[in-house]
Design a protein around this nucleic acid. Sequence first.
DNA 1: CATGGAATGTAATAATATAACAGGCGCCAT
DNA 2: ATGGCGCCTGTTATATTATTACATTCCATG
Lengths: 168, 168
Amino acid sequence: MARDPDQSASGGHAEAHRHAIDADAVQSRARAYATSKGIPFTAMRQRVLGLLAASGKPMAAYEIAEKLSDARRVQAVQVYRALEFLQEAGCVHRLASQSAYFACDHLHGSGEMVVFMVCSQCGAVQEAASDLVARGLRGVAKTTGFKPLHPIIELEGECADCTSEPVG
Amino acid sequence: MARDPDQSASGGHAEAHRHAIDADAVQSRARAYATSKGIPFTAMRQRVLGLLAASGKPMAAYEIAEKLSDARRVQAVQVYRALEFLQEAGCVHRLASQSAYFACDHLHGSGEMVVFMVCSQCGAVQEAASDLVARGLRGVAKTTGFKPLHPIIELEGECADCTSEPVG
DNA sequence: CATGGAATGTAATAATATAACAGGCGCCAT
DNA sequence: ATGGCGCCTGTTATATTATTACATTCCATG
C-alpha cells in the first residue's frame, strides 16, 4: 500500500496528517519482546503491526482484517489475537474512545501515564507523557485511597494542522 | 458518586460499595435541563435515570433494558435514546473503558476535567476533579498545539474498600 | 380541529469482541 | 527419531455494543 501522504494541493488535507511511525523500530521492539518471552513473532503478528505502522493512524480491528485479506480471508478473531500480543509488547495501544488500535514506536516505562491526543478531524494520534498529569492523577487517587492500575487518558479534539486548516 | 472519602476504612463493606447517589437531586437536574431546552423529561428517561441512580454503579445499556423490561420488553435502542438525553443533561456519564453508563449527582462546569476512578473488583466509580491534572493536560496539549474538546480520564484500579478487604 | 415536531415501539442490521474446537507446527525430553 | 506438549492458526459460531429505518403515537400549538 502506498505510504505516501496524498499531498494533492487544494482538496483534502486529511491524508497529509499521516505520521507514519518507524516501522523497523517497532518491529524490532516486538521481536525483542517475543524473544524475551520465548514466544514467536509470527507472520500474522508482523502483518498486523506492519499495517498499523504504515498507516500511522488508528484502525478498527475489522478494518485491519479487511486490509490484510487477499485470496484467504483474514478473520477478525485472528486480528484480535495479534493485537493482544502487540499490546502486551507495548507496540500497539487501544483507543478506548474509538475502539481502535494504533502502533506506537517508542517504549513507555511501566507506571508511566501517557496522554493520547486524538484529532476528531484527521484521526491522527499524538502521545505525550506528562509528569504533572501523572502527579495530579496519583494525587486524586491517593486522597480517595484508590490504587490506579491502568490509566486511560484520551483527549479528543483538534490537532494543530486541522486547527490551522479547517475542513471545508 | 463522588462521596466524601470515607475515613473509617475498617468497617464491614458488605453492601457498602453501593454509593447510591441522590436520586432526587439528579432527577431534578435532568428535569431542569429538559425544561431549559423545552423538551420533555419523559417516563422512559425517568426510568433509565432512576435505575442508574438507584444502582449507583455503571450498567451496560442492555443490562438497563433488561431490568426495565416487564410485561413489555424495553428494547436497547430505547435505552440508548434515553442515555443520549441524560448525557446531554450531564446526569449520566459513559465509561469508555467499560462501555457502561452511570448516574452522577453533581454538576460539572463546562471545560472541567473530571477523573473517573473505576474499581475493577466492585465496579464502583468515584469522580474527582483535579486542577493539577487539568493544568497538566492543557499543558501537554498546548505544547503540541492540540485543542482538547472532550477529555476522557479513567483510572482502572482498586478502590480503598477492596484494597483493604480483598475479594473472598 | 388540524398539523407538525418529537418521542415511542418495533424490526433489522452494523460494528465490536470473545468462545469453542479441530488441526498443524515446532520444540525438546526422552 | 519420535512422541508429547504447548502455542498458534483457521474456522465457525455467538456474545455484546450500538445505530438505522420507519410506522405510529403523543401533544403543544396554530
